[in-house]
């Protein structure tokens, strides 16, 4: 059974003249107990989608079912069963860690003790600071507190809107570890992120760009869908190298990728030709190798295709 089912959702803002379409005919299914990632940059429509699913916003058309309940008709029931962590830091800055948790526990008619097992691993990390005002916590700590607050009533479905934006790489890793732990406890998680590398940590992902779904697949599936041969190239003088690569007939696309440039070649037959051309040009310290596509390569390809 699907935990979340979204069908043909359309949402636009503004009047006729300067109408902006935030979500353009979005459909997807999230299975019970999985981590489903909505991957896309700012302005892709992630927040609108989350607000529709958490009953905060009405879609122009289309249907959405969360945990078997309709988001429009049965919004009150949904509000009791889901946890939501909005993109911005949404806790009371002038209340302490403990006061925030207590408050959210009582408004969900529960107590910290009742569901302590669920938040224990996360809460233990922030417990040393329990008397500190939330506004004085570091980014990673705030995020852990927000997650604890969203979990305090043991929700069936957890919505996390860009939980890792602006958070450093270490805290991001830790956060995803926590999500794995929650998944093991049977909670369905819908999470959005602009960091492409986090897609690999999801069970299924939807790549979103400008309100449209580019692809829905497992992370591995997204990568196998990438049909072009890919090479990583580097040499002394990366900027002229990039210009040279872009100018080549045989090359579909070339862009910086970490310490290398990634070169997307038009088809398998041309790979050798690219190798030869590069070897024969006067590039010093040239290195090139075949590489597997990364989720980011796929996203760039899908973005440019549309």
């Amino acid at each position: 059974m699907s935990s979340i089912s979204v069908k043909n959702i359309i949402k636009s803002y503004g009047k006729k003249k300067d109408k902006v379409i935030a979500l353009n005919d979005i459909s997807f299914e999230v299975k019970e107990g999985e981590i489903f990632g909505i991957i896309g940059p700012d302005g892709a429509g992630k927040t609108s989608l989350f607000r529709i699913l958490t009953t905060l916003l009405l879609a122009d058309s289309g249907t959405a079912i969360v945990d078997g309940l309709d988001v429009i008709k049965e919004f009150e029931k949904i509000r009791k069963r889901v946890g939501y962590m909005p993109g911005r830091f949404s806790l009371y800055q002038d209340l302490t860690v403990k006061e925030n948790l207590d408050f959210f526990a009582t408004i969900f008619n529960t107590s910290i003790e009742e569901n302590y097992s669920l938040i224990k691993d996360i809460y233990l990390q922030i417990e040393p600071f329990k008397d500190r005002r939330a506004g004085k916590l570091s980014g990673g700590m705030k995020q852990k507190l927000a997650l604890s607050c969203a979990l305090i009533h043991r929700p069936v479905v957890l919505f996390l809107d860009e939980p890792t934006t602006g958070v450093d790489a270490v805290s991001r890793k830790e956060f995803w570890e926590m999500l794995k732990g929650l998944k093991a406890q049977g909670i369905t998680i819908l999470v959005s992120t602009p960091y492409m590398d986090e897609a690999m940590l999801c069970d299924n992902v939807a790549l979103l760009q400008k309100g449209k779904v580019l692809s829905i697949n497992t992370p591995a599936g997204v990568i196998t869908d990438f049909k072009y041969p890919l090479m990583a190239v580097k040499a002394k003088g990366m900027l002229p190298l990039l210009e040279q690569l872009k100018a080549m007939e045989t090359v579909k696309d070339a862009y910086p990728f970490g310490e290398y440039h990634h070169v997307v070649i038009k088809n398998e037959q041309l790979v050798q030709q690219v190798r030869d051309t590069l070897s024969n040009s006067s590039l010093s310290d040239l290195q090139m190798k075949r590489v597997e596509a990364d989720i980011e390569d796929c996203f760039i390809d899908l973005m440019k295709e549309k």
Binding site: P41, D42, T165, G166
Partner: peptide, 16 residues
Amino acid sequence: GGVDPVTRREFWNMIY
């Protein structure tokens, strides 16, 4: 932060 991968690269190009 939050910029799509294609624009991110265009941005770095400007830095270069």
